[in-house]
Design a protein around this nucleic acid. Structure first.
Length: 673
DNA sequence: GCGGATCAC
DNA sequence: TATGGTGATCCGC
């Protein structure tokens, strides 16, 4: 994490003359995890550092770290620039926002998160009992997927390269991954889960969320007993142990399942005080969605360590981060999370990538590309997908990641089409020493909101806050997960309707991302351009065709240059006028000003524009004319009918109240419960 | 829409 | 000798 960042707020770090340089090399796998209690962390830290020092990987980590340091410096500067007036303004905005979020707290559901203990390792031990009691890791010398608890005592962990693990634990046994096995056992566990919640949400092969509200009610027993019973059943039917967490929402349930791991459980009651007490001292890193970078930034800039401090520093968070980010932070401070029933969702992209020993050999690279195109095409056709946006991913020998994308007019899925376009993308990057190539397809045929179709992007306040939840991105089927096929109603990104968060009266920037030089010097681009036409085309063609005989397509590729592509294949950006709130205050279509807190009013306003739009479309058909603002109410009613179903779905009965209600309560000095 | 970054498992 | 693969999201352009 912070390699060269001994900072004022991190007073314990003594980075003088590299006396203890390993202390500042914070890798992701030094985070405290279950089974790591008696570990000599300093020794692990030192070993990891010694094994990594000087490597290309390490140098890249240093480079990334320098960016984070820069970002931290920038945030600190912005903090220092805030005046007392600014702070009091943002404190008010934050207080209001926190009240709005609090108003949406839902304590009516009981969620259970179940997490298998060292899943891959446990399955391997089942099929080979001689491994029992010995330190073992699933994975390879390059990368470890899971380590059993014996290995964890040595500091061996998932995501750690095997050669470092072996240094930490010389007798470590390596077992190669076997996903068929894990899928089989995963299916067995899911048979159990289904008995408690037929609509349970699989988060991965070894994790699931169950809404046990109904089963508790029906059998009139406590959630604690359900959790015990479920874990016993899983053990009896698979021979595997698991841990469970029970809480009023999924975010908290996930945190709880980690508390008594392995083979344990923890129940957090559906009580606001209990939640607030629980959350107050909880380190933010325990929250899903807060990773090592966010943790580091929040600690270094604001001194935030616990969830409670998210609320204490609310005015700063409000001032320096986007609204959606600030909302998420506040939710964490309040212990809020999603409680809704599983939404089914369409996948949004499909991809594959491979790492190999770094090479500049263009023939080899094109051959790898052809293999990936073949695999991707096969995967897409298995699912009946056709896509328009193709993204090439490259990792250079210095571990720098680049992506290059193109959006086509036509939907494609054949390996010939994929390879043709992917080759163009790759050609523009060469020459380059590469250690990984990947291909991703997105923007699928049939995507609901894929294009510029008229689509009310403005979400209801309920949608908005619900989607702020940290586990928003975790309920997608993994590759081997056939249980979870999906569709979703509001497949809309929050960011798409957000602009700058700067208040109208502010004169400082809210820009938090330091998007400075990413290694793409103009010189490099120039170089790429000069080499755009592949010098050894004959060899490349031979390599590709020997891998996958292609009829003619590759000939075409050689004559296509980038400008042709731009004219011929690429789409121009299609702008469809969608309403958004400029500076979070002003309607981009008519200029009316409404503060963010006027959620209901804003909703009505966006409904108005939607109605206006619909009417325009209609009148185009009827050769008829305009819309006057006097008819707002009438049109608003029409729109309301259209979208009322959606709102009902997104509002839990009884939990919804107009925002004004809480302002009223607040001014009466009554906090809503 | 693109590209970089972050995150989870 | 040696630091993964898949999918999603957010932000600033």
């Amino acid at each position: 994490m912070a390699m060269a960042t001994a900072t004022a707020t991190e007073g314990t770090e003594t980075n003088d003359d590299g006396a203890r340089p390993w202390q500042s090399y914070h890798t992701v796998y030094t985070t405290a995890k279950a089974g790591m209690d008696g570990v000599d962390k300093e020794k692990v830290q030192r070993t990891v550092y010694e094994m990594s020092k000087g490597s290309k990987y390490f140098q890249n980590e240093e480079r990334k770290d320098a960016f984070i340091t820069q970002k931290i410096d920038k945030l600190r500067t912005q903090c220092d620039k805030l005046t007392q007036a600014d702070l009091s303004h943002f404190q008010k905005v934050a207080d209001r926002r926190i009240l709005e979020l609090e108003a949406l707290r839902d304590l009516s559901r009981i969620w259970l998160h179940v997490d298998m203990d060292a899943f891959y390792a446990a399955v391997e031990t089942l099929s080979n009992p001689t491994l029992k009691g010995k330190p073992m890791a699933v994975g390879s010398m390059s990368m470890i997927s899971t380590a059993n608890y014996e290995a964890r005592k040595f500091g061996v962990r998932a995501a750690m390269p095997g050669f470092i693990a072996r240094k930490l634990c010389p007798e470590l046994i390596f077992v190669p991954t076997d996903f068929n096995k894990y899928t089989h056992y995963s299916d067995l566990t899911r048979t159990v889960f289904r008995r408690y919640d037929p609509n349970f949400m699989a988060a991965s092969l070894d994790e699931a969320y169950l809404d046990i509200t109904e089963v508790c009610k029906r059998r009139n027993i406590k959630s604690e007993e359900i959790a015990e019973e479920l874990r016993t059943s899983v053990y009896e039917e698979t021979g595997l142990t698991c841990s469970a967490g029970v809480a009023p929402n999924r975010l908290l349930a996930k945190v709880c399942s980690d508390i008594n791991k392995p083979n344990g459980q923890y129940v957090l009651p559906n009580d606001r005080m209990a939640v607030m007490t629980f959350i107050s001292s909880l380190p933010i890193r325990k929250i899903g969605g807060i990773g090592k970078v966010t943790e580091h930034i929040l600690k270094a800039v604001f001194g935030i360590n616990t969830c409670e401090q998210m609320l204490e520093k609310a005015s700063y968070l409000c001032a320096l981060f986007s609204q959606s980010t600030a909302d998420f932070f506040f939710s964490v401070g309040l212990g809020l999370g999603k409680t809704d029933s599983p939404e089914v969702r369409f996948r949004k992209s499909i991809s594959n990538e491979r790492t190999f020993s770094a090479t500049e050999d263009e023939v080899l690279l094109y051959k790898k590309l052809a293999e990936l195109a073949e695999m991707l095409s096969t995967d897409m056709q298995k699912e009946g997908l056709c896509g328009r946006t193709l993204t090439l991913k490259l990792k250079t020998s210095s571990f720098e990641v680049r992506t290059r994308a193109m959006t086509l007019r036509k939907y494609i899925s054949s390996r010939e089409d994929i390879l043709k376009h992917a080759s163009e993308l790759l050609k523009a990057e060469l020459p380059l020493s590469v250690r990984l190539i990947g291909l991703r397809m997105s923007h699928f045929d049939g995507d609901k909101y894929g294009g510029s179709t008229s689509n009310p992007k403005q979400k209801t306040i309920t949608d908005f806050i619900a989607s702020v939840d940290a586990d928003r991105n975790r309920f997608l089927p993994d590759v081997a997960d056939h249980d979870f096929v999906s569709h979703t109603e509001t497949n809309v990104s929050i960011g798409s309707c957000q602009t700058s968060r700067d208040p109208a009266d502010g004169n400082h920037s809210s820009d938090v991302n330091c998007q400075s030089g990413t290694g793409w010097s103009s010189e490099e681009i120039q170089t790429s351009g000069n080499n755009a036409s592949c010098s050894n085309y004959g060899q490349v063609k031979e390599a590709v065709e020997s891998t996958f005989p292609i009829q003619g397509q590759f000939e075409d590729t050689s004559t296509l240059n980038l400008s042709n592509l731009l004219d011929d294949e690429r789409l121009n950006s299609c702008e469809d006028k969608t309403m958004l709130w400029l500076n979070d205050y002003k309607c981009s279509l008519c200029g009316i000003e409404l503060p963010p807190s006027f959620a209901e009013e804003r909703l009505e306003h966006s409904d108005f524009h939607l109605a206006e739009k619909l009417q325009k479309e209609e009148s185009r058909i009827h050769q008829r004319t305009s819309v006057s603002s006097r008819s707002w109410d009438q049109k608003n009613r029409i729109t309301r009918e259209r979208i009322s179903k959606k709102q009902k779905l997104s509002q839990k009965e009884g939990s919804y109240r107009p925002i004004d209600y809480f302002f009223l309560l607040k001014s009466n000095k009554n906090r809503p419960s």
